[in-house]
């Protein structure tokens, strides 16, 4: 065989390998989702969503867990959004990028994004639940999850600010704008697409987190939906976890149905993120 044929062969075999690799992930996902849908769809109805938990699988619903998840979602967003964006702005626009301190900060923030979530749970337990005496409340849970997703938001903010060309900063300063006006009126609007995408993806990760909430003492069984930030709570993943570990087959069906709800929430959130990103990309072409 000559060199040319060997190269062709390499080319086509890599292509096949690539196709197989892509399919492995996809097929497994399809099997998983198919299995879940097969189990869960017949259980999924309005009653299931609006019922309180129960010892009998056919009467049990996800209302409290779903409400807990929504509370957590909103409170985490309210806490993490301003802090994460402010930190991102500081590091990108104000921090002296060459200084030792800001390089150290940068490395640490990237590392924080990789810290196992259970560690955040331990931190939350010690600081929020015990030291600040919040108890296993929604507030403690949201603060813990906010810490967990802060690094993601900081990095997303920095990346989107970096994507705004310097010519825009020059134009703004050249008009006599202060740094704050430049950031607030030009840089943030121009990078909001990327920032929001990052925030939503981070939140959709937070929605699926279980470990840190178990550690801070969120309950698997809460008789009523929370009505304020200091209430005890449960969330969907915990409800699922609890049901899966029960012996009755009815609860396994329930957990499949709850997984469908959880998946729907995350898919909707990711969809919004993708939509926002595309919209902004279309609107702003440098």
């Amino acid at each position: 065989m000559n060199k040319l044929k060997i190269n062709r062969l390499k080319d086509s075999s890599f292509k096949i390998w690539g196709i197989i690799s892509t399919l492995i992930g996809l097929i497994l996902l399809v099997i998983f989702i198919g299995d879940i849908l097969d189990d869960g769809l017949k259980r999924l109805n309005w009653d299931f969503i609006t019922s309180l938990p129960s010892r009998k699988p056919e009467r049990a619903g996800i209302y409290t867990a779903l409400m807990g998840t929504l509370w957590i979602l909103i409170m985490t967003a309210i806490i993490a959004f301003p802090i994460g964006i402010a930190a991102g702005i500081y590091l990108e626009e104000y921090g002296n990028k060459k200084s030792f301190l800001s390089r150290l900060l940068e490395i640490n923030i990237s590392n924080l994004a990789g810290v196992p979530s259970i560690i955040y749970g331990l931190l939350g337990l010690e600081v929020f639940v015990r030291m600040l005496k919040m108890g296993p409340s929604l507030l403690a849970g949201s603060l813990t999850l906010a810490l967990l997703i802060l690094p993601i938001i900081v990095v997303a903010t920095r990346e989107s600010l970096k994507a705004v060309p310097d010519s825009i900063r020059e134009a703004s300063f050249g008009m006599g704008a202060t740094k704050w006006q430049t950031i607030w009126m030009n840089l943030l609007p121009a990078s909001m697409g990327g920032v929001l995408t990052g925030v939503i993806l981070a939140l959709s990760r937070a929605v699926g987190e279980t470990a840190p909430l178990i550690v801070i003492g969120a309950l698997a069984y809460v008789p009523f939906a929370p009505s304020g930030p200091m209430d005890e709570f449960s969330v969907l993943p915990m409800q699922i976890f609890n049901w899966v570990s029960r012996p009755q087959h009815g609860f396994v069906i329930n957990s499949a149905a709850a997984i469908i709800v959880l998946l729907t929430i995350t898919i909707i959130m990711n969809g919004i993120a993708v939509y926002l990103r595309n919209r902004w990309q279309r609107k702003i072409k440098w």
Binding site: E170, A171, G174, G176, A177, M185, P189, A190
Partner: peptide, 27 residues
């Protein structure tokens, strides 16, 4: 800031803000 209102600048590459024409001029 005041100085740059008195001494304006136009750059090499057109660099309008990603806003409407109106908002650019009103900035």
């Amino acid at each position: 800031e005041q100085l740059r209102k008195d001494i304006g600048m136009v750059f090499q590459k057109p660099n309008p803000f990603p806003k409407t024409v109106f908002e650019n001029v009103a900035f």
